[in-house]
């Protein structure tokens, strides 16, 4: 995972000491457990962008992704005393973010929130892999517009996947994680993770065939 600059501007204007940059995630968690807030913001600095990206792909909702990313860090801080360094820290933080995202998806499902995603969800009884949309074949469109449209389509298609496929696919094909780590994050057997990702890709291929 790409690390950002060691020194950064923490909230309220103070500059975090560069010495935290030399500490690994577990050592930072130890410091946070002792109440060291600067160590906490070092962790925030390291993970805020990948976690926000991951949540944005999961939810297709930037504002909610920011909200849940912050909630993820708050949980890291408030439960630091329970943290155990028996896995990678990144596994731990992605697991928290995944749980928050899935809770949000289920909440939306319960309350039947109307969103763009719902228009792309397969209707009851319909084929799961039904094609999303017919591409606009009109000539003379700007390349940027086409790319933008395609990106939007990809996001909606990913967001329309069932949640059990979505998390695995996003972690593998967008975040680029190893299968073993995904299995740790999702607490699933390796074979289950691979088959879910395979299934998710084939569903997406059906939805986006016109754009491939």
């Amino acid at each position: 995972m790409a690390m950002e600059a060691v020194s950064y501007q923490a909230p309220l204007g103070e500059v975090v000491s560069p010495r935290y940059g030399a500490l690994d995630d577990h050592e930072l968690m130890d410091a946070i457990r002792q109440g060291d807030e600067a160590a906490f913001y070092e962790l925030v600095q390291r993970y805020r962008t990948p976690i926000t990206n991951y949540l944005t792909r999961m939810l297709n909702d930037y504002d909610m992704a920011i909200d849940l990313a912050q909630e993820t860090f708050i949980r890291i801080f408030t439960s630091a005393h329970r943290y155990r360094a028996d896995h990678r820290f990144s596994t731990y933080i992605y697991r928290i973010a995944t749980n928050l995202a899935i809770s949000e998806l289920r909440r939306r499902k319960r309350w039947r929130l109307v969103s763009l995603v719902s228009f792309f969800a397969p209707p009851e009884g319909a084929e799961e892999g039904a094609e999303l949309d017919v591409p606009d074949q009109r000539p003379l469109q700007e390349r940027a517009l086409i790319d933008d449209e395609r990106r939007q389509m990809v996001r909606r298609a990913v967001a329309s996947l069932p949640e059990k496929y979505r998390a695995a696919l996003v972690l593998r094909d967008i975040e680029g994680m190893e299968y073993e780590r995904i299995a740790e994050i999702l607490r699933l057997p390796l074979g289950t993770v691979k088959s879910r990702i395979n299934r998710a890709r084939r569903l997406l291929r059906e939805k986006l065939r016109a754009h491939l």
Binding site: A10, T49, T52, R57, A65, R150, R151, V154, V158, D173
Partner: peptide, 21 residues
């Protein structure tokens, strides 16, 4: 498909992310 997914641009966090947090 994988190339398309991986071509997704990275989302930037807002400048006041830490302050909000």
């Amino acid at each position: 498909l994988v190339a398309l997914l991986r071509s997704e641009p990275e989302v930037a966090v807002p400048a006041d992310f830490n302050r909000q947090l």
